[in-house]
Design a protein around this nucleic acid. Structure first.
Ligand SMILES: [Mn+2]
Ligand SMILES: [Mn+2]
Ligand SMILES: [Zn+2]
Ligand SMILES: [Zn+2]
Lengths: 156, 156
DNA sequence: CATATAATTGAGATTACGTCTCAATTAATA
DNA sequence: TATTAATTGAGACGTAATCTCAATTATATG
């Protein structure tokens, strides 16, 4: 797993240790399907029979973020969702308010326009996040929402 | 204040009451400058000499959101920030990681592309949020960051 | 206007999530 | 192998947000 070397390198650069706990968490993260929250990560570790304290899990996530292996992607039901980014192309998300489905999309044109705007404002971008909430095709059909109408009708 | 009527209407439609507490909270929200968090809202109410319980404040925000008067805009330092949207054009945000400054921008082209993507996926959008984190012009200069370089350099 | 009724409120308890503390342990190095 | 600074885990702690429930009140109706 190539992410491991990157993580090791990152740790070494700052005189941090590559402990078994950090290795286990890294493996759990990479074995999870991309979007996950802390709860799911802890579950996974449990399934792997790794008893790692909450504190350590919480302490390790920022390291994985700092080393560019994962990032925070969206807040969903007041939970922070993370995802692997190492080896993945940047992309954005749509979240279905009914079934919770997450749809990924990539639009380079949008990204280019974002960069242009940053340049206009003299802003140095580090991270950007675009999230669209709404209803996926299936749910929209069930709810009889018309995709071509621009407005959401308030219930009743 | 026109938002008041909209709120009243919303409440009436669902057999909810237009109580003094709700009125006060609405007024506080509309007198605050656009981006605020719960803490600031409570401060404001205090300044207005309105003693409204925490529970009521928390219970009222979702109503204001549901009635399209305000929306959640961004999470900043693990706090949810809200802002009035009634009577304001939709826009997105840049947040400076150093000084906390929030820069608003509007780019219709980006919005159009988002809508196109939704149409492609059959997704019915309700809300979208684009946030760019990074460094504002002033901070970028202080930190000697080069706006034209695409990558953020990891420290040391 | 008086009454009926369902919605609302506030105080405080409770939960949920995340951080902190500190003694014991351990990875890295030489 | 010895040295040393980093790490860990258990549990205390902090804080935001939600819940509970008895008392209150906005609204509709006659
Ligand atoms: Mn994703
Ligand atoms: Mn704004
Ligand atoms: Zn759905
Ligand atoms: Zn700044």
């Amino acid at each position: 797993m190539k992410g491991k070397d990157k993580f090791k390198q990152y740790l070494k650069n700052r005189n941090l240790k590559f402990t078994p706990e950090r290795k286990d968490i890294l493996e759990a993260v990479f074995s999870l399907n991309s979007h996950f929250d802390i709860e799911q990560l802890q579950q996974k570790l449990k399934k792997m029979n790794k008893k790692i304290s909450r504190a350590t899990v919480y302490r390790t996530l920022p390291l994985l973020i700092e080393s560019n292996l994962i990032k925070e992607t969206l807040h969903c039901q007041s939970r922070v969702k993370y995802e692997r980014i190492y080896g993945h192309l940047p992309h954005d998300h749509m979240v279905c308010l009914r079934c919770g489905k997450i749809i990924e999309f990539r639009n380079e044109e949008i990204e280019k326009l974002q960069m242009d705007t940053c340049r206009d404002k003299g802003f140095f971008p580090v991270e950007h996040r675009l999230g669209i909430k709404g209803y996926c095709k299936e749910c929209a059909e069930k709810l009889k929402l018309d995709i071509n109408s621009k407005k959401v009708y308030s219930k009743k």
